[in-house]
Design a protein around this nucleic acid. Structure first.
Lengths: 342, 342
DNA sequence: CAACGTTATGGTAGCGCTACCATTTTTCTG
DNA sequence: CAGAAAAATGGTAGCGCTACCATAACGTTG
């Protein structure tokens, strides 16, 4: 005695229901949905009609189980609220919104351990691709990525040794360019102010240092950093610390735009003239930089584009034609503004 | 002739492998993992040992298929980059990071149609709960939510008619409070400046209008809005428009803090004294408001807490004890600062 | 100590879909 | 137009897990 309808399923239509209604086999329905070109025009129409009428939506779980491959992109970022990563994530979402792929987003909180845990978890879902922020994975994470059995894109940075593919730019060069600009503009006692010194920030600092040393201007007391999460108020505080430590400061390269904005506000408050007394350069070029008063020089980065490109590369790899160049450098651009126009 | 190992699976260990190694039945392993208290201490230990040794990770797809219920929270927000929603999402992620639940995040781009499409998609995964931003779903979306067969939490706002549960605050009251504060501070020609006039913004505007009308100060020419996405540069432009339209303006209630910041910068640029000539109030109280110069009065909202609370309520409902109060109002707080200290 | 819960474990039968292969139909050769 | 290749369709057998029920091993009770 067989019950006609499953006791467990919520009564939603299955592929078998569609097949019955369309008068074809279940496999043909499956094919019509996934590779329509392999099914005759006529059947395709019949099947589509049955799908529409029943309101059939394939169960992604069953699909993943049967095909040993989920239509999921795993995405790992260190922060959800940092505008920079939010932009990357937005690029990824926009690029994938018309595809069958879902997105599994993980927040590592800048922690290598968290990253390992999430990678382990994501791996269990056999994702179609993995996109991870940064290039400094722990050895464990790196192994996990190498054995993921799917395309992997490391984003935000470029480096010499991709797990698979990379899209980003050189933070070292960014930091150096920003600092050189300050030097060229005539600033000499140029400080570095940075919060949340993740590997990318470290490389910007290294770029700053390289430029300063080359010009014979480097002094370790010019560097002010903290592991605390970056924010505008923190930028203000760090600037005050920097100024207390080094009252002759005449410029700052800020690790990011939040910090730069905090510095600008403190200058207003303390009646420090920008750019005459202090020059300010930010990093990322959030849109508020160009309307700030004075407008703030910053290193423009292409976060949204990084997300889009990462998806494009992963999609190409899934489709079988891995891009020629596995490391894509999207570069950056120095936006000169009033804050350094001495 | 049976092949000992599946030809399809990637050779990852399955529950059967664990069961064999631990010398128990597969079901017992399944139980030991999901409801450990129903398995004897001894077996539990053996099973855990086998799990660790094999590096077994349960396949969430198989699990979802077999139990007709995925351990997934569906989360729908209108924007990924708007700091406000990013904070809510962060609260959700943080609350769920130690649970077995995954998160399926969808970006509706402020579009009802997109929301319907995503709800349809998410529904096909039989999520454990749904969290959606806003209370103005289309009839179709509302029906989808009602038939989702899982707890539903509408967040960001409160209203009279929850699909299931709600966590948020009253945007109308927020708008009214902000405006009343300006009036009390002595401002009279108070403008409203808003971008991306989604339903929440509309209600803030309604609150503004109510306060203005009550004081006999309302004038439609004081209202400047645009459907364009909000940003700091846009705030600047809208303020210029508003001022051109109404040169006697002496205060502005900004729909959000980005706009307020744009207004502040324009005031600096045009040498308009804040708060003497113009008073400014923002909405949301991003952390930069308190360090801006002058610091900006804003309506503090509890975005992160909304995310946490929504998850807590959903989790309670899943566990069987639906909270008594299905609509939770987390309120807001007016933060008085220099920008309105006339 | 028989009769009855109660608790711990296991077996069977799917969940809804697709990989793999078999079969049928159509289209192309020479 | 026979014969072969190609295209279109279908059947079977799982994917890895858990719901459901059955069974076994324990107490409890009168």
């Amino acid at each position: 005695m067989i019950k006609p309808r499953s006791r467990r399923g919520g009564g939603r239509p299955t592929i078998a229901d569609v097949a019955r209604k369309a008068g074809v086999g279940a496999i043909t329905v499956s094919r019509a949905l996934r590779e329509p070109e392999r099914v005759s025009e006529e059947l395709r129409r019949q099947i589509q009609a049955a799908v529409d009428e029943l309101g059939y939506v394939p169960d992604p779980n069953a699909r993943a189980l049967a095909s040993a491959r989920a239509e999921v992109f795993g995405v790992l970022v260190p922060s959800l609220t940092n505008n920079v990563f939010a932009e990357v994530v937005r690029g990824i979402y926009d690029s994938l919104s018309d595809s069958p792929f879902r997105i599994q987003l993980g927040n590592t909180h800048y922690s290598g351990l968290e990253e390992e845990r999430l990678l382990q978890l994501f791996g269990s879902q056999r994702p179609a691709a993995l996109i991870v922020a940064g290039i400094d994975q722990t050895p464990t994470s790196r192994k996990l990525l190498e054995n993921a059995g799917c395309p992997v894109v490391q984003v935000m940075e470029t480096g010499p040794d991709p797990v698979d593919m990379m899209v980003g730019f050189s933070h070292f060069d960014g930091g150096r360019t920003a600092t050189e600009h300050l030097i060229e503009a005539g600033y000499r006692r140029i400080g570095f102010i940075g919060a949340r010194m993740d590997p990318r920030s470290q490389r910007r600092l290294a770029g700053y240092r390289a430029a300063m040393e080359k010009a014979g201007l480097f002094d370790p007391r010019l560097v002010t950093t903290t592991p605390v999460l970056s924010s505008v108020p923190l930028g203000r505080e760090l600037f005050r610390d920097a100024l207390a430590k080094m009252p002759t400061l005449d410029g700052v390269f800020c690790n990011n735009d939040d910090i730069a904005l905090g510095v600008l506000f403190e200058c207003h408050r303390a009646a420090i003239d920008v750019p005459k007394t202090i020059g300010i350069v930010g990093f990322n070029d959030l849109d508020m930089m160009q309307v700030a008063f004075p407008s703030i020089t910053s290193i423009r980065t292409y976060r949204y584009e990084i997300g889009r490109r990462a998806v494009a590369m992963a999609l190409a790899a899934i489709a079988g034609d891995r891009p020629q160049e596995r490391v894509v450098d999207l570069g950056f651009e120095l936006k000169r503004r009033e804050s350094t126009a001495r």
